[in-house]
Amino acid sequence: MNIFRFAGDMTHLASVLVLLLKIHTIKSCAGISLKTQELYALVFATRYLDLFTDYISLYNTLMKLIFLGSSFSIVWYIRYHKIVRRSYDKDQDTFRHYFLVLPCLLLALLINEKFTFREVMWTFSLYLEAVAILPQLVLLQRTRNIDNLTGQYVFLLGAYRALYILNWIYRYFTEPHYVHWITWISGLVQTLLYADFFYYYFQSWKNNVKLELPA
């Protein structure tokens, strides 16, 4: 464990807590894409298959349970909670996220580190996570006005993967044989997808104006 990875995990944790806080306290999911939340639940479900078979550390197991629990409960809130679901804007959240799942699965079957079920599922979760934010970014472009919590959520979600890139660089230089091109490239693609959001997020923060994304 290194400081970059720990900071990345804490930033990731903060992003799901911000989202849970928003949904649980103000009982609203306005501006949140259910599709992105469903994709994230699928990412965690396919990545943490080793939850009960490989024990790495208490920290690792605890965080996996938190990410699984929070992502599924966010999906449940938006889908079934009688108050929250009313604020879900399904007419705007129309990204066909199934078109993301299949290519990621095919790619994982083609490009992976080892052709086993667990490894292909893990690789699938990496590719899927890289594109999971797309429905959310499209929704933000459409709804234009971004409330603070949603903006913070997306920012933290992007920042965690950027910190992971620093972690991979650190591990590459400190651990022999630590080479995982698949992880690195999909993590880089994921961070680049946030790049324009980061740009407008910092612009709004610097000029102290409300965050607006260009149409």
Binding site: N60, K64, T183
Partner: peptide, 10 residues
């Protein structure tokens, strides 16, 4: 060995 590499990252 690299075969049974266990992914230790979240």
């Amino acid at each position: 060995t690299v075969d049974d590499y266990i992914h230790d990252e979240l």
